[in-house]
Computed example of a mutant assay.
Amino acid sequence: MYDASDPRAALAAAPATVRPAPTRFAGAEYARFYELPPQEEAEGLRGWYARGQNFLVNHVEAAAGAILARAAQPDEYVLLLPDAATRVEIEAGGERRGLDGNSLAFIPPGDSRVTVKAPGRMIRLFTTRAGDLAARAVNAASYAEPHPNVAPLADWPAPPGGWRVRSYGLDVPPEPTRFGRIWRCTTFMVNYLDPADGPRDATKMSPHHHDDFEQGSLVLDGAYTHHIRWPWTTDMTIWRPDDHEYCAAPSLTVIPPPAIHTSRAEMAGQMVDIFCPPRRDFSEKPGWVLNAGDYPMP
């Protein structure tokens, strides 16, 4: 359900399918990094980890000289640099290149190394195939058993130009017919939402659900309240009360399917939506995925 001014109101309706009613629901996951000690501390950096079924988020505060390295990474991952003053050097796939802040990069499988040249916040997104990192998540115990209703992770096609570091600037002007600023790779879709300039209009909320994929909502600045409601089924024993959770920055909320959800900015702020693997419905909208030419659809 979207307000007429919301670009998502133009999404094509999902084809009618006969889905069995869920027999179990998972709760939402809330990781308020600002309330937690870091799960990782090394020279020049402090890192927090939280996960969903298919993906994990590593929020890092890094000083100049800090190094984030991966060896034998099984798949493509994301490096997001939200602060304009940050600068890093990336070594991966046999290349070395600098990257300024206010940007994101997709880093190929295999060995990689990110050296911080100018400090700032860094967010890395990995699939949970990176088992060593998934084990560090503050909510790792919640996934001792797989959560229900989430489709298995399946990668999208490899880029025709081969594996390499691909980077994109975040400073893309808003477009009324496009929802946020969306990029995708083989494993992730990242929507760097248009920033909130103040509290969201309470008469223009967007309650909706996803049949079989999680949504990660990463608050980078400001604060948001996540409103989440689970469907009622014939089995009253699996009903869950609604959530109305206030999450400031930095924090990650993982919204499970098929819960109905919407988020309200409580002040000026910045939120990023994370999907793993990419969403087909967003990808099918012309012009919505800003790097669609680099990564083909299945």
Rank of each mutant, 00 (worst) to 15 (best):
L133K: 12
R46K: 11
S103W: 02
D100F: 13
E95K: 04
I67F: 01
E145G: 03
A92W: 07
L125E: 00
V57E: 03
P37H: 05
Y34V: 08
H147E: 12
A85G: 07
R136D: 12
D111M: 08
D132T: 14
E89M: 14
R113M: 05
A134E: 05
A71F: 15
A64K: 01
I123E: 05
A130V: 10
R70V: 13
I107Q: 05
L133N: 13
T127Q: 03
V114D: 05
L36H: 11
P82V: 04
L104M: 10
L36M: 08
L133Y: 15
R96C: 09
A84N: 00
P74F: 07
L133V: 09
D100A: 14
F106T: 05
G120D: 02
Y34L: 04
I107M: 11
L125R: 00
A105Y: 04
G110S: 05
E76Y: 11
A71L: 11
I123C: 09
E35R: 05
P38A: 11
A72L: 08
Y77E: 10
A50W: 12
D132K: 12
R136M: 15
Q73H: 12
T86F: 00
N58L: 13
A69I: 15
V116Y: 08
G52W: 09
G98L: 09
A64C: 01
L133I: 14
G120E: 02
L56E: 02
L36Q: 12
V116R: 00
H59M: 07
S142N: 10
N58A: 13
G52A: 11
G101N: 01
A118T: 03
R121P: 01
V116C: 08
D100E: 14
R70I: 10
R46V: 02
A135C: 12
E95L: 05
I90G: 06
V116F: 11
R87Y: 07
F106L: 07
A118S: 08
L133R: 10
N102H: 14
H147M: 11
V114Y: 04
F126A: 06
P74V: 04
L79I: 04
Y143S: 06
I107R: 03
L80V: 02
P74W: 10
N54T: 13
A84W: 02
L68I: 12
H59I: 08
R87K: 13
G65M: 08
A134M: 14
A84F: 07
V138S: 15
R113H: 04
Y34F: 09
V114I: 15
A140T: 12
A84I: 03
H59E: 15
R129M: 15
G120S: 06
R113C: 09
P74N: 01
A62F: 01
H147T: 12
L68C: 10
Y34R: 03
M122Y: 02
D100P: 02
R87S: 10
E43A: 11
A118Y: 00
F126L: 15
P38C: 06
A130H: 13
F106E: 06
E41A: 14
V60G: 05
A69P: 01
V88I: 09
G65N: 02
G93V: 03
E61N: 07
A118V: 02
G110T: 01
A141K: 11
D83S: 04
R96P: 01
E41D: 05
E89H: 09
G65Y: 12
L45A: 04
E89P: 00
H147W: 13
